[in-house]
Simulated assay, not measured.
Amino acid sequence: MTIQALLFDKDGTLFDFSKTWNNYTLGVIEHFAAGSAERMQWIAETIEFDLVGCAFLPTSPIIAGTNREAAELLASAIDGKDADEVEIYLSESAKHVPLAPVLPLKPYLSDLKENGFALGVVTNDSEQAARDHLRSAEALDVFDFVAGYDSGFGEKPDPDPLLAFAQQIKSTPDKVAMIGDSTHDLIAGRRAGMVTIGVLTGLATETVLAEFADVILPDISHIPDWLTSA
């Protein structure tokens, strides 16, 4: 097996999902509940978020969904708010979320780059949010390709954004590894004909990912050793 390129998901892969988004989401719920405990509970139930544990349920559609899908789901639980208004709020407020990288990204990614790997990010977040978050982590300039659900290639689990990466770096899909924490990531990788690497820094368990992953690693720090052994 020869891997020439690594394509990463963002949330739950480069950034620890729970550490980054749980407290932020609680703040979003509180914002739209506007002081109503009943409304707060209803919003949380709609998006499948545990208020007591301050955590998403593994079945929440927001975990692997797009920003637009999250906005539409939230809007369905909020009187007097449409999805456009909610989406704008999510986009603006997410710019300030305290990010929790799985590891220091800049040195890690720079080492991969120096070893000859092309690097990309495909996320179901917006492209601008992805660029903002990667820039905040001082890692944006290391990537050859960054695509969000709104970049014109489609969204995971469709393979098209993954294939766009392979085309841009002039590689065949079988020489690319798709790395992600959700079934959306790995199904997209399988559909694209790529090697699939599951990581456990999101909410999906090893059992859930196993059907779609060629290998499952605790987190992205284990990828260099796996590449060497593979």
Rank of each mutant, 00 (worst) to 15 (best):
A139V: 00
K156C: 00
P161R: 04
F17Q: 05
T13A: 05
I169A: 04
I220V: 13
K170V: 09
I220F: 01
G189C: 13
Y89D: 11
T228S: 09
A147R: 04
P159R: 14
L200V: 01
V146E: 02
Q167V: 06
L6A: 09
F153M: 07
S182H: 01
A44Y: 12
G80A: 07
E206Y: 08
T228P: 04
V52P: 06
Q128I: 11
V86P: 09
M1R: 08
Y89V: 12
P58T: 15
A210E: 15
G53I: 02
D214F: 07
D11C: 00
D82M: 09
E72Y: 02
F212S: 11
I197L: 14
W21I: 00
G120W: 00
L227R: 06
I223Y: 04
S76Q: 10
K106V: 03
S110D: 12
A83P: 13
M194N: 05
H184A: 06
S76N: 04
E30C: 08
N124R: 00
F17D: 02
Q128M: 14
P58R: 15
M1A: 12
L119D: 01
T183P: 04
Y149I: 00
L209W: 07
A94Y: 09
Y108W: 15
V97G: 02
Q168I: 12
E87T: 09
T205Q: 13
E72N: 07
K81G: 02
V208C: 10
F212I: 03
V195G: 07
E30R: 14
M194W: 12
G180V: 05
I43K: 09
D111Y: 13
V195C: 08
S76C: 01
I63C: 00
L109P: 07
V86L: 13
A34R: 11
A55N: 09
L119N: 05
D225K: 14
L73P: 14
P173R: 08
E72P: 01
E48R: 15
D181P: 00
A71Q: 10
V102M: 03
A137K: 02
A71S: 08
S229D: 09
S93T: 14
M178F: 05
G53A: 13
L105R: 00
C54P: 06
L57Q: 13
V86T: 14
G53E: 09
G53Q: 12
E138H: 12
S151C: 08
G189W: 02
P224H: 04
F49A: 09
L6C: 10
L26K: 13
V208G: 01
F153Q: 12
A94P: 10
V102S: 03
L103S: 10
E114T: 10
P107F: 12
A192M: 08
T13Y: 10
T172F: 15
P161K: 03
K175H: 13
P101S: 11
R190Q: 15
A188K: 01
G148L: 01
A64E: 15
N115C: 14
I78P: 10
D11Y: 00
S91N: 14
N115A: 12
V208W: 01
D160M: 10
L203P: 05
K175Y: 04
T66L: 05
F15C: 07
D219H: 01
P159S: 15
K81Y: 15
A166N: 13
D219A: 01
